[in-house]
């Protein structure tokens, strides 16, 4: 398999016996745009930092462009663009100095894209970085990451803390980059709308493992949630044993049961096992799917 990125059974713990990543495996092929989703603390940043060679897993292997970040981190970083929320740019420099530093570090540079981004955000190369707003600083970080034409762009919650307009502008730059290079993108985000706009595939991490790995269109079309009254199935096992059931989550007086399948088929399956016809089965948005898959149980509302 010659993917751009390969994770094989990654295990990483910060505290003994409490692994954040507990056997994560997936791969990213060239040209894919993969959204890494998961609740806070489920290891998205950890996984991304493992890719960059900024962390080592306790077990498992990771391959970036076929190389190992443990042995060839510099060679890998030369082909990667990286933007993270906690990346502090040197405040006292000007944009021009930062750009010239990056031009020195990386072999190729896209002057045209740099100019377009600066125009789009109405910035001049003489501006000092510490005077930029959060959105503008993030845009400059993105500029530095994409203008050297990386083969892989890694974004770690790039839109965190930005206002919706800034988020949209950030996405625009990412799409311009995609258009020019057709490169691969791995990004983690909590903004499901953004993920749906730009993502092709979603990988959802939960409790240290990959819970779901599917194309976004398939997530929208092939998954549904059924609302089953709790009295109809006091024991959730009856539901979770049905073919295609991913999870049964109690929400007030109902079970929200997540299924892989189309709503009509699921309705028939439920009629057979639970004995109720016409149970409500609906498709969901990515955000609702995420909540159903990883959300906590909601206690019964006291009347």
């Amino acid at each position: 398999m010659s993917g751009i990125l390969e994770f094989d059974n990654i295990v990483r713990a910060y505290v003994k016996a409490k692994p954040v990543l507990n056997g994560v495996s997936f791969s990213v092929a060239e040209g894919e745009v993969v959204g890494l989703l998961g609740r806070n603390g489920t290891g998205k940043t950890t996984l991304i930092q493992i890719t960059m060679g900024l962390l080592f897993p306790q077990s498992g292997t990771v391959r970036v462009f076929g190389l190992s970040p443990a042995t060839d981190p510099v060679a890998i970083k030369k082909r990667i663009g990286y933007v993270a929320e906690d990346q502090v740019l040197p405040g006292a420099s000007s944009i021009a100095e930062l750009v010239s530093f990056h031009k020195y570090l990386f072999p190729r540079w896209d002057d045209e894209l740099e100019r377009r981004i600066l125009d789009r955000f109405r910035l001049s190369p003489k501006d000092k970085i510490m005077r930029l707003s959060k959105g503008q600083a993030r845009a400059i970080a993105l500029l530095c990451a994409v203008c050297h034409r990386p083969e892989l762009l890694i974004l770690d919650e790039p839109a965190a803390g930005l206002d919706p307009a800034a988020r949209r502008e950030f996405l625009e730059v990412a799409i311009q980059f995609l258009n020019r290079e057709g490169a691969t993108i791995l990004f983690s985000s909590h903004y499901m709308n953004d993920v749906e706009r730009i993502g092709g595939r979603a990988v959802i991490l939960d409790e240290g493992k990959v819970r779901l790995d599917s194309s976004l269109d398939s997530l929208r079309e092939d998954y549904c949630v059924a609302l089953v009254p709790i009295e109809a199935a006091p024991n959730p096992e009856t539901l979770t044993h049905i073919t295609g059931c991913l999870r049964a989550r109690s929400v007030s007086r109902d079970w929200h049961v997540l299924f892989h399948g189309n709503p009509d088929d699921v309705q028939k399956l439920l009629a057979q096992s639970v004995g109720i016809n016409g149970i409500r089965c609906d498709r969901m948005t990515l955000e609702e799917l995420f909540v159903e898959l990883t959300g906590n149980e909601q206690a019964q509302v006291l009347s």
Binding site: Y14, V15, K16, L54, F56, Q58
Partner: peptide, 17 residues
């Protein structure tokens, strides 16, 4: 090393969050 690490490779005994 060639690349610096964000955290120790061995897990800590207690939470150093």
């Amino acid at each position: 090393p060639q690349s610096f690490q964000r955290g120790p490779t061995e897990p800590a005994l207690r939470d150093l969050a």
